[in-house]
Computed example of a mutant assay.
Amino acid sequence: MNGSNVSIDWESARQANRENWNDRVPLHEIAYGLHRYDDPAHLSDVVREDLPVLQRFLPDRSLQGLDLCHLQCHIGTDTVSLARAGANVTGMDFSGPALAAASALAARAGVQARWVETDVLDARRAATGDFDVVYTSIGTITWLEDLHRWAEQIHGLLRPGGIFYIRDGHPALYALDEEAPELTTRYRYFGDGRAQLWDDPSTYIGDGTVEHSRTYEWPHPLSEILGVLLAAGLRLVHFDEGRTLPWRFSPRMVEAPGGYAWPESERDLIPCTYTIAAQRD
């Protein structure tokens, strides 16, 4: 069943995904090591890697005093980290339990943040005001069916001159068979409107299991991701591809600086992530 192609309406898929992400919250509150944020200098590994790239495109190369909207923020570890880097942060997510956990983390960490419960595809309508930076953490847009609408939300949230930043799992990576003994393509790279159905009670971190195990994701090739951002009126200012991931996509991956990577002999064969920065003129 895992990875099978199915036709399903967006609302049904979204509801199944939200139930799954709601179930992940108490597991991730344990697995993410939230006690580390008691140290006022602690930043998430994701933000620590993203900041040097993102700041290249900001006034004074700093987030200090800038208004930042973090889409699909989950339990807020990256949002809190961005606030510690100086931003005035607003975290958005479609999971109420995730935002409750994020709010509790921010309070524990002594960080000011706003939290908005909304589907990312309705972010512009749900937000108050506009932003200097719109940020998306890793592991996000495969959960979205309609990337044109996603890109329109980003454009609408940004002020003129504002920057959108995303680092995410590479669609070429997602096409691989994660269980194969070698790099082998198994899943679609190109989308055709159908979702990929997964039924897996585990999550990408920790040992617990979820009650609502069925989820739906959509493959989006790089051409589509870049195309929708350009079509929405954003201008590409940075693109890069990386060799490591912050989670173990496959049991064959090994620990490496920055997370996990393929064995050394395969590391240059396939990208693990892509990074995009785009500006609203």
Score class of each variant (00 low, 15 high):
Gly76Phe: 00
Ile154Thr: 13
Phe239Pro: 00
Gly96Asn: 07
Val134Pro: 00
Ser250Asn: 07
Ala102Ile: 07
Glu29Gly: 04
Asp67Trp: 14
Ser202Ala: 12
Asp9Leu: 11
Asp200His: 04
Leu173Lys: 05
Arg188Ala: 14
Glu11Thr: 11
Glu241Met: 01
His212Asn: 09
Asp23Leu: 08
Gly191Ala: 04
Tyr32Thr: 05
His220Asn: 03
Val25His: 10
Gln153Ile: 01
Gly33Phe: 08
Pro219Met: 09
Gln196Gly: 02
Leu229Lys: 07
Gly191Glu: 04
Gly96Lys: 13
Cys272Arg: 01
Thr215Ile: 10
Ser137Ile: 03
Met1Glu: 08
Ala151Lys: 05
Ala107Thr: 12
His70Trp: 02
Leu183Lys: 00
Arg61Thr: 13
Met253Asp: 08
Leu158Cys: 07
Thr128Val: 09
Trp21Met: 06
Ala13Asn: 12
His220Gly: 01
Arg280Pro: 02
Pro221Thr: 08
Asp122Phe: 06
Trp143Thr: 04
Glu178Phe: 13
Asp146Phe: 02
Arg114Val: 06
Trp10Gly: 00
Ile30Asn: 04
Asp50Ser: 01
Pro219Lys: 01
Asp192His: 06
Leu66Tyr: 03
Asp168Lys: 09
Gln64Cys: 12
Ala98Gly: 14
Asn88Thr: 12
Asp281Trp: 10
Arg114Gln: 10
Leu71Trp: 09
Asp9Glu: 13
Val46Phe: 00
His220Pro: 03
Ile75Phe: 06
Pro219Thr: 03
His74Met: 13
Leu222Ile: 11
Ala123His: 01
Val89Ala: 01
Thr118Phe: 05
Met253Lys: 07
Ala109Asn: 08
Asp60Lys: 14
Leu226Arg: 11
Asp60Ser: 14
Trp198Cys: 05
Gln112Lys: 12
Val116Ala: 04
Val254Asp: 05
Arg280Ile: 03
Tyr204Ser: 04
His74Phe: 13
Leu230Lys: 11
Thr275Trp: 12
Asp50Pro: 01
Val46Arg: 00
Leu230Ile: 14
Ala127Asp: 00
Arg159Glu: 13
Arg84Leu: 12
Val254Lys: 07
Gln72Ala: 15
Ala107Val: 09
Thr140Ile: 02
Leu147Thr: 02
Asn20Arg: 15
Tyr204Asn: 01
Asp122Ser: 10
Ala126Gly: 05
Ala107Lys: 09
Asp78Gly: 02
Met92Tyr: 03
Val133Thr: 05
Arg159Trp: 08
Trp198Leu: 01
Pro251Arg: 03
Asp132Ser: 05
Asp168Gln: 04
Arg280Asn: 10
Leu269Gln: 15
Ala104Phe: 03
Arg61Asn: 14
Asn17Tyr: 06
Leu229Ser: 12
Pro97Asn: 07
Gly208Tyr: 07
Leu147His: 10
Leu176Tyr: 05
Leu147Phe: 01
Thr185Val: 15
His35Ala: 15
Ser95Glu: 14
Tyr174Trp: 13
Ser95His: 08
Leu99Val: 14
Ala126Tyr: 02
Leu236Ser: 11
Gln55Arg: 15
Trp21Arg: 09
Asp200Tyr: 02
Asp268Ser: 10
Asp67Cys: 11
Gly76Arg: 07
Arg124His: 09
Leu245Tyr: 06
Ala31Val: 10
Tyr174His: 12
Val111Cys: 03
Asp268Ala: 15
Leu51Glu: 13
Ile75Asp: 05
Ser265Gly: 09
Asp168Gly: 06
Tyr32Ala: 14
Gln15Glu: 15
Ala41Cys: 03
Ala98Val: 11
Ala16Ile: 07
